[in-house]
């Protein structure tokens, strides 16, 4: 009985070991490419929010989010010619299907510069329209769902169908994204206030 259990255990360990070896090989090839890809995505996203910036530095450990459901992943302070022009915060929060990742840029005046969705798995045609550049919540002015956050003051309530225009039939997505933007904004503003934007 014991012997057969040991035999089965050893066989299982052998299979697991082989699988590990295979995965290690694939990971060692793809790992650097994935890291590079993520770095490129991040730089492109930061550049899209602060086109004037000429550099950024990581301030992740100094940030604290006000909402326990929304996790602050990373934060960056954006520089231009040595002076701070704002901060960008990447945060993940619950949305309709899975977690949504949003990058929010806050200017030194405490207003949202721009917010961009990095990851969203909500229903195509509904919630996914939050990230669709051709879906306008304000059709005459061609303002996209994320576009409406630009210039918004952090003191606003950020409620769906209130001061945030909702995506048709997707109030949950609307509210979730708005909450992530608000929480990220608050974290970034707290940082900018304590450092006086002079760091």
């Amino acid at each position: 009985m014991i012997r057969s259990m040991i035999r089965l255990g050893v066989i299982l360990a052998l299979f697991a070991g082989l699988a590990c070896a295979g995965l290690a090989v694939v990971y060692s090839i793809t790992g650097p490419v994935i890291a590079q890809q993520q770095q490129k995505d991040l730089e492109a996203a930061l550049k899209a929010i602060f086109p004037d910036s000429d550099g950024f530095s990581d301030i992740t450990p100094e940030l604290a989010g006000p909402d326990p459901k929304i996790t602050i992943r990373n934060g960056y302070v954006m520089k231009k010619g040595g002076s701070t022009i704002g901060a960008a915060v990447k945060a993940i929060g619950p949305s309709y299907s899975a977690g949504a990742v949003v990058l929010t840029g806050i200017g030194t005046d405490g207003k949202v510069v721009r917010a961009v969705i990095l990851e969203l798995n909500d229903t195509p045609g509904l919630g996914a329209n939050a990230a669709n550049p051709n879906y306008f919540v304000d059709k005459p002015n061609k303002i996209t769902f994320m576009g409406q956050f630009a210039g918004k003051s952090l003191g606003d309530p950020f409620t769906a169908k209130g001061d945030v225009q909702a995506i048709t039939a997707s109030t949950i997505t609307t509210q979730s994204i708005a909450a992530i933007v608000k929480a990220s904004g608050a974290a970034a503003k707290a940082y900018l206030d304590t450092t006086g934007g002079a760091k």
């Binding site: 699988a19 295979g22 694939v26 990971y27």
Partner: peptide, 19 residues
Amino acid sequence: IVIAAFTTMVDLVMKAYFP
């Protein structure tokens, strides 16, 4: 174990080359 190993490989390859 076998299925999970291959799935993870696909996942990694897609993340690297078809982000």
